[in-house]
């Protein structure tokens, strides 16, 4: 099993030296304990660097260079993580990809936008596109556990698949030169198959994403009323670096053993995997053909 450490920004690169440092959600479930109880002491041999969710936070060339240097110092391979991307941000991203191809050809690029895969295919042939988890659609619904017992078995099985688990998507990915597919650890289980057989694949821990969008609720905090909740607004105070929003559910719709909590950080809602879900996912990883675990100390 390959272990990758995912870091979103230059300011957090020191985590490459202390990946298990608990800087984000405090709680009883320690991913380190779960991982080490199943795999023993592990070493992170790959650094994921960049943003999955926000194209305003695409790193600059200097940030990426710093991350590449960090990965070299730590003896880690390097993957650039990229978000879904507006036309404006695509220009910046293209420059970043050109730089990456120059200084570290044959690097992986985690793509969470079909356009970025296409761009790599057309213009950056030494870079290796990976289908990020945002493109690999699945039911990531923290409320599902309350409903699952009422759903007939045949129908419930449909929720344990992902969009890459079929031969047509596999052939499309092959045509586009996509080398790997990524996924979340699903609250309802993954028995149906997250991936088509024979495709290298990764699993993210300890957070799964539920929903994300260009309109950023926390990012609008403090703006003038008319400037709030704009998808194409230019103002961003980067409050997502300093705060997240705990989401309490008064109706009790989120529950069960798999989801520990739900929260919004920046423009994205996440669920935190419980110890049981984490253990179950990691145990099943090999049988599902997963050969890489991506650990995120901070979710975005």
């Amino acid at each position: 099993m390959e272990w990758a450490l995912a870091i979103t920004d230059r300011g957090s690169l020191d985590l490459a030296g202390s990946p298990w440092k608990n800087i984000f959600l405090q709680g009883k479930c320690s991913p380190q304990q779960v991982v080490e109880s199943l795999f023993g002491k592990i070493r992170f041999t790959r650094l994921y660097f960049g943003q999955e969710f926000c194209d305003r936070a695409i790193p600059g060339k200097e940030d990426m260079t710093e991350a590449i240097l960090t990965s070299l110092k730590k003896g880690m391979k390097f993957s650039l993580v990229t978000p879904y991307t507006t036309e404006k941000a695509l220009v910046r991203l293209e420059e970043l990809l050109a730089e990456l191809e120059d200084i570290r050809p044959f690097s992986e690029v985690i793509c969470n936008d079909w356009g970025v895969i296409y761009l790599i295919r057309k213009k950056f042939s030494t870079l290796v596109p990976v289908m990020g988890r945002l493109l690999n659609k699945a039911c990531r619904e923290p409320r599902i556990l309350k409903h699952l017992k009422d759903i007939p078995d045949g129908e419930a099985a449909a929720y344990r698949f992902s969009s890459s688990a079929n031969p047509y998507t596999k052939s499309l990915l092959k045509m586009l030169g996509v080398a790997r597919v990524e996924a979340d650890n699903l609250p309802q289980g993954m028995e149906g198959g997250l991936f088509e057989r024979g495709v290298p694949s990764s699993l993210y821990i300890p957070y799964g994403f539920v929903s994300t969008g260009r309109i950023c609720f926390p990012g609008s905090w403090g703006l003038r009323q008319r400037e709030k909740f704009m998808a194409s607004g230019s103002s961003c105070s980067r409050l997502c670096r300093r705060y997240f929003l705990e989401m309490d559910d008064l109706s009790g719709c989120v529950g069960g053993d798999a989801v520990k909590s739900v929260f919004q950080k920046g423009n994205t809602v996440f669920y935190r995997q419980s110890e049981g879900l984490l253990t179950g996912g990691l145990k099943k990883a090999r049988t599902l053909g997963i050969d890489r675990i991506v650990y995120q100390p901070v979710p975005n």
Partner: peptide
């Protein structure tokens, strides 16, 4: 509320996830 193409919640489980009456509390990191 979110990008429809990147929303992986389901309306089948009690309506739109974003319409749920969530209580929010900002937590400092």
């Amino acid at each position: 509320v979110f990008e429809e193409g990147y929303c992986q919640a389901s309306h089948a489980f009690g309506g739109a996830f974003c319409h749920q009456p969530w209580q929010y509390r900002p937590i400092y990191i």
